[in-house]
């Protein structure tokens, strides 16, 4: 398989995943697109031999996350909040989407990366450690802190609530 096939194959199979991972780390669609582009072009320019698709996926995730960390501190004339991506026509956003995006944007990439890998991709702590090259305890700590910063409700199930009703006079 030549270089273009590897990168093309990777893009067709994992393009959305890389974009999501980048977005989950930076909270901005435009940045995520730039990062995703960088990742696949890097693979295109510097081919990598993968053992299998899982290896490729893990490599793409690591590279994407590393790029996210670098990208957020790159040169900006003025730091602005993400543009209203509803206006850019990327996808339709409701109030919840806006809130989630802002929370992601506010979170440093090192936290948002493990949050994404754990809660979206479903990796275990140890697997995340292998992907990111970090000690599992470190991953655990980052996950915990990330949740605290997000005040995320991440319980596996929602117990039925017992609430009183509110009667208005």
């Amino acid at each position: 398989m030549d270089n273009s096939n590897i990168s093309l194959y990777a893009f067709r199979k994992y393009g959305d995943m890389v974009l999501r991972a980048a977005y989950a780390c930076c909270g901005c669609y435009a940045e995520a697109e730039d990062i995703a582009q960088d990742v696949f072009l890097q693979l295109h320019a510097t081919p990598v031999e993968f053992e299998d698709d899982e290896h490729m996926k893990a490599w793409l995730l690591r590279v994407t996350i590393n790029r996210c960390k670098n990208y957020r501190r790159s040169f900006r004339i003025s730091r602005t909040q993400p543009i209203d991506e509803e206006n850019s026509g990327m996808y339709s956003m409701d109030t919840t989407d806006i809130e989630v995006r802002e929370l992601i944007f506010s979170l440093p990439p090192k936290y948002s990366a493990v949050i994404y890998l754990y809660y979206y991709e479903g990796y275990q702590i140890k697997e995340i450690g292998e992907i990111l090259g970090k000690n599992p305890n470190t991953v655990n700590s980052l996950l915990q802190r990330g949740r605290e910063k997000l005040r995320m409700e991440l319980s596996e199930e929602n117990k039925p609530t017992k609430r009183g009703s509110v009667r208005r006079t």
């Binding site: 393009g15 959305d16 974009l19 977005y23 339709s92 919840t96 989630v100 995006r101």
Partner: peptide, 8 residues
């Protein structure tokens, strides 16, 4: 759900 909405 939010992340699901992200695609190329």
């Amino acid at each position: 759900k939010h992340i699901d909405k992200i695609s190329c």
